[in-house]
Amino acid sequence: MLMSDTPRPFWQTVSLADMSREQWESLCDGCGKCCLHKLRDEDTDAIYFTNVACRLLDLNSCQCSSYATRFRKVPDCVSLTPEVLADIDWLPPSCAYILIRDGQDLPDWHPLRSGSPDSVHEAGISGRGRMISERDAGLLEDHLVEWPAEIPAGVARKRRKRPRRR
């Protein structure tokens, strides 16, 4: 058996909790799906995605237009941390944070693998062209969609028990 001299990528060797800020931030593929509004059924606890994006999301680039100050402008914006990931059940199944948390690898279209920030858009994984701003949406119930919850090609998913709500 031949040993490869090529080092393994950081996401395969460093735990989420031990990643540097730069490594952690680079896991985001820029799909924009985490910035979509979701609804939770009070009776079943089921999550329903909408195509309605936070007002700060640039609908073309799928990047936050005010990332550094987003918590001041959108107080309920969630800061993803390894600790928070343990209890989250509403991120899309293609999310790199979820994939790595659940012991999966990054798909080929992820920018860390492809070398291009556009690969997530080119692969049709992002919300580009499918989202509307909350400023224009009206009732969220009128904008329910399934595509953010779909498991795209190249993502092998292990089913994970849903965390208990507190």
Rank of each mutant, 00 (worst) to 15 (best):
M19S: 06
C95P: 03
P82I: 15
K158W: 00
I100F: 04
G138E: 03
M3I: 13
R55K: 14
G103R: 03
S66W: 05
E141R: 12
K161G: 02
L85W: 04
E134V: 03
D102Q: 14
G30P: 02
K33E: 02
D5F: 13
T69L: 14
E25Y: 10
C31I: 04
L36Y: 05
K161Y: 01
D102I: 02
D43M: 12
P9E: 13
L16G: 06
Q63K: 15
G138P: 01
S20E: 12
R101I: 01
D136H: 03
R8W: 14
H37S: 10
R135L: 13
R72H: 15
F10L: 10
E22A: 15
D108M: 10
R135G: 00
L91P: 01
C28Q: 04
L57A: 06
G115Y: 08
W24H: 08
S20R: 10
K161L: 15
A53D: 04
M19F: 10
C54W: 02
K73F: 13
A137G: 00
A96G: 09
R113T: 12
D43N: 14
R128L: 02
W90S: 15
K33P: 00
E150L: 12
Y67L: 11
A156D: 11
G129V: 01
R130N: 03
A46M: 09
M131Y: 03
G154N: 03
I100C: 05
Q12M: 12
A68F: 09
N51A: 09
I47Y: 03
G115W: 07
L16V: 08
V145E: 05
